[in-house]
């Protein structure tokens, strides 16, 4: 197991966006989190990655250094514990080049090599070696995301699909154990979607587990090992893609999206 979500609850004022949701993500697998719009998927991500403090429940990461209780950690510490994420509405550093984006992602490792900045100013450090290594890592992911020829362009100038890939490359440069992707295929054309699927499978093959929010059922069904379905903040199904596809509750949640409110 890589992530254990237990009874996660998130309230905003009177609104309960996530209601006692429990599920597990397993190491080396792609776990998909699906559900209609407003189901609370992004909110779950925000709790896992420390942007919201959960109103209740436990989040346990089984990372490189053993168990970590994520609900108690500050956002940047969660990232350091090995959880990386992308955002539903892309958040790059648009005025920095593609390469710079990937180096910022390796900030902590580089910073340690500079002697917390002071050594670097004086030029007395292991920094050059660390930077060379960081560049190699960046090039590796640029290659994997087919962005190598755009390395020196500002991130804000990339086309949409390339920005999505860059965000994934940037997250991977932090060398996470768990990669959380919020609708990575949104706005991609079919060819780009296929490439994305291949990229995610490649990432899984390298040993990083993936938690995936996605609306594109083609992508979800093709690459996920395990699917969790949310609706109105509650978990309504959990199983293999085939099981979930056959689940009556899931079908009604998706088909009856319009009149859900009356039912509730």
């Amino acid at each position: 197991m890589i992530l254990d979500v237990e009874e996660l609850t998130m309230r905003f004022g009177g609104l309960t966006a996530v209601h006692a949701v429990s599920f597990q993500a397993w190491g080396g697998e792609i776990t998909a989190l699906i559900g209609p719009n407003g189901a609370g998927k992004t909110t779950v991500f925000n709790c896992i990655t420390g942007f919201y403090r959960p109103s209740g429940g436990k989040l346990t990461l089984f990372g490189r250094n053993g168990e970590v209780a994520l609900q108690k950690l500050a956002g940047h510490r969660i990232a350091r514990a090995g959880v990386a994420r992308t955002f539903q509405n892309i958040r790059l550093f648009p005025g920095m080049t593609v390469l710079e984006n990937l180096l910022v992602a390796q900030h902590n490792r580089l910073m340690a090599a500079t002697g917390w900045g002071i050594g670097a100013v004086l030029g007395l450090s292991r920094y050059p070696a660390a930077e060379a290594e960081a560049l190699e890592r960046a090039k590796h992911w640029l290659n994997a995301t087919q962005l190598l020829d755009r390395a020196d362009d500002p991130a804000g100038a990339l086309p949409y699909g390339a920005q999505r890939r860059l965000e994934i490359a940037r997250a991977m440069c932090t060398e996470p154990v768990l990669l959380c992707l919020d609708e990575p295929a949104a706005g991609l054309n079919p060819r780009e979607s296929d490439e994305l699927s291949a990229l995610l499978l490649q990432i899984r093959a390298q040993g990083t587990s993936i938690l995936l929010i996605e609306h594109d059922m083609g992508v979800v069904m093709k690459i996920s090992d395990h699917v969790v379905v949310l609706d109105h903040g509650r978990k309504i199904a959990d199983g293999t893609p085939a099981e979930v596809r056959a689940d009556a509750k899931v079908i009604s949640a998706y088909l009856g999206e319009g009149d859900e409110d009356e039912a509730a």
């Binding site: 942007f51 990232a79 350091r80 990386a84 790059l92 005025g95 900030h107």
Partner: peptide, 15 residues
């Protein structure tokens, strides 16, 4: 500079 560009993304990267 990354902070100037997007603080939230910085946090997600462990800064």
């Amino acid at each position: 500079e990354a902070l100037r560009e997007d603080e939230i993304a910085c946090r997600a990267l462990g800064i």
